[in-house]
Design a protein around this nucleic acid. Structure first.
Lengths: 158, 158
DNA sequence: CTGAATCCCATACGATACTG
DNA sequence: CAGTATCGTATGGGATTCAG
């Protein structure tokens, strides 16, 4: 871990060089990061938590992932994201649209057709999501093994 | 987006070169990815969702973040993660320990002392988390702006 | 086809009080 | 200090039904 540790809390974790997601807004980012370590730690934690609550729910990232390959209509998306209910697909798409991460285009046809696609802002999420998804796939077996081991020890300890 | 798109679903999103998180397990990863596009799409989605459910809850990532700077004892962690209740701190730490992401060391002293630290496996999570945290901080304002705009249009549409 | 509306359950989470 | 136990609320999310 070659991170530049700041003070305490969750400010340090975002200060390392992740070698990805380089945008034109990093100036603002650095400004925020340096605006006093103690305050920023709590504030940054809140920011991360807020954004995470919005984007790291059960379906948002998977929808972004499915949409990252190109525009999809509602029913196609329904199939591309296995296990999602109609209700949650609608709901999650609305939230993503509200946050400007996906755009919704309605075609005045019959039968009605609605296409969803990731916006430019949504595109910026794809790299972070990819990294996390990659981690999930690579480390799944290891985590499951640890979990089983832990549970076995618990049972033995009774 | 220069991702190598595979077929459909969420297999493609993890196939791009994110230039990060290069581990010795990538062989397994590639094997899994190529084990049939259609099946793998659904299976990969499930994997991502499972891991995300475990790690993307309200506190796990923040605790990992706080711990990434070095070992911390329970009370210090309680301060480092603003807003968390002791109940959730205990609960989340147990889950992280169960998954092998953090380790717990008890010192037989009085007063009792318990130190938590990220494991080697937990370290591998820090880069993905950093990337996502960075994204959250950088794009927060933009998202809030979109949200306000959307809500304003909704109110006007009534 | 694309949703919106309703019902209902499981659980995540916080507050509080108690223990070794 | 580092938890455990119990309670209550809020929310997520599935199943089903209705509508444009």
């Amino acid at each position: 871990m070659d991170a530049v540790t700041v003070a305490s809390g969750n400010a340090g974790i975002i200060a390392n060089e992740a070698s990805a997601n380089t945008t034109q807004r990093e100036a603002e980012f650095d400004e925020l990061r340096l605006s006093g370590a103690c305050d920023a730690a709590a504030e940054t934690s809140a920011i991360i938590r807020d954004m995470l609550d919005r984007v790291a729910d059960k379906w948002s990232l998977l929808i972004i992932g499915a949409l990252s390959e190109g525009p999809r209509r509602f029913s196609a998306l329904h199939k591309s994201v296995p296990g999602i209910s109609q209700r949650m697909l609608t709901h999650t798409l609305r939230n993503l649209e509200r946050d400007g991460l996906v755009s919704r285009e309605v075609f005045a046809e019959v039968p009605p057709r609605v296409e969803y696609s990731v916006t430019e802002l949504g595109e910026t999420l794809i790299v972070p999501v990819s990294v996390l998804a990659r981690w999930a796939v690579v480390n799944r077996d290891t985590i499951l093994a640890h979990r089983d081991l832990y549970d076995a020890r618990q049972d033995a300890g009774l």
